[in-house]
Amino acid sequence: MSRHRPRPVGRFCVSMLIAATGTVHAHDFWVQPQAFQVQPVQATPLMLQVGHGPYRQRSPIALQRIVRFQAFGPSDQGVDLRAVLHPGEVAGDGEVALPRAGTYLIALETDNRAQSHLPSLRFNDYLTVEGLTPALERRRRDDRMDVDETEIYSRHAKAIMQAGPFDAAAQASVTAPIGLALEIVPGVNPYALPRSRTLPVRVLYRGHALAGATVKFTDLDHDDAPIEVHVTDAAGRASFTMPTSGRWLLNTIWIRALPADAEADYETDFSSLSFGFL
């Protein structure tokens, strides 16, 4: 039976238009430092970005929705950085200073209070473009292809930064999962790879390998469309051609149906991993 119950509307609710591929990309969210490779102790501004191409902008997310902002480094595991965030300020949405040489993982996570109501055609397009096949098959199976849907969603973003010279003994923090609901985990440190190598990644959903996730690899300096798109295998793995310059983004989305008595029909998680070279 279709659910057409009233939906609560609050200040965190948004209406997302999914009429074109460019608009679908507006889901993408990531942390972008002014520079990914910096000197130790040097304060570096960062931006919270959303969208691609003509839809790219600074995210309007409110500080109270950010529930986690941490740094994982050579000897500092899970240092709370939330105090350095100030979303919406002219100079940037925050800044970070990495205390010593090594590779660091910066992680940001939001709550799931954001909500969107999607007309049926746009929701179907969204599921198709993002490769969310299980949800699309469920709609067909349950005869819901013409039913509008409501989703709640959260964002899970990681950025890899390098402070000072590369140290092979100080990189483990970027290749281990940190417990995000949806997480892209690189198999190797991007800054350790020589030219013409591949970058293997795993996608984890609620701590388990996620098969069938569409992962996109985008050049952030030419970001109208991703340059590579792969679907994870049974072990949640995919591989990408490794660049040696520029700024880059990996992102993926996953969705699950909620119980009939929930406030929304689906819960969606958006995950990203950004890094860049000098």
Rank of each mutant, 00 (worst) to 15 (best):
M1W: 09
S2Q: 06
R7C: 07
P8V: 05
V9N: 11
R11Q: 04
C13K: 05
S15Q: 13
G22M: 04
G22A: 08
A26C: 08
V31R: 04
Q32S: 13
P33T: 15
Q37T: 00
V38D: 11
P45Q: 03
P45G: 13
M47Y: 14
L48N: 05
H52A: 10
R58H: 02
R58S: 03
I61Y: 02
A62C: 01
L63E: 00
I66N: 00
R68V: 00
R68P: 00
D76R: 14
Q77S: 15
V79S: 12
D80Y: 05
A83G: 04
V84Y: 14
H86L: 15
H86S: 14
G92D: 06
D93I: 06
L98N: 11
R100W: 12
G102S: 10
G102W: 13
T103V: 15
Y104K: 03
A107Y: 01
L108Y: 07
D111M: 11
S116F: 07
S120Q: 08
S120Y: 03
S120V: 03
R122S: 09
N124E: 06
D125P: 07
V129I: 08
V129G: 02
G131P: 04
P134S: 02
P134W: 03
D142G: 06
D143Y: 08
R144H: 15
D148Q: 10
E149P: 00
T150K: 02
H156C: 14
A157Q: 04
K158C: 06
I160H: 02
A163M: 03
G164D: 07
A170S: 11
A170F: 00
T175N: 15
T175G: 06
P177R: 15
I178S: 06
L180Y: 00
I184G: 07
V185G: 01
V188D: 04
P190A: 10
Y191K: 12
P200T: 13
R202E: 13
H208G: 08
G212T: 03
G212C: 09
A213M: 00
V215P: 00
T218D: 08
H222M: 02
D223K: 04
A225L: 09
P226W: 12
V229F: 09
D233S: 03
G236L: 09
R237F: 05
F240K: 00
T241G: 04
M242G: 02
L249V: 05
L249N: 10
W254M: 02
L258M: 09
A260M: 05
D261S: 08
E263V: 03
E263I: 01
A264P: 01
D265A: 13
S274C: 13
F277V: 01
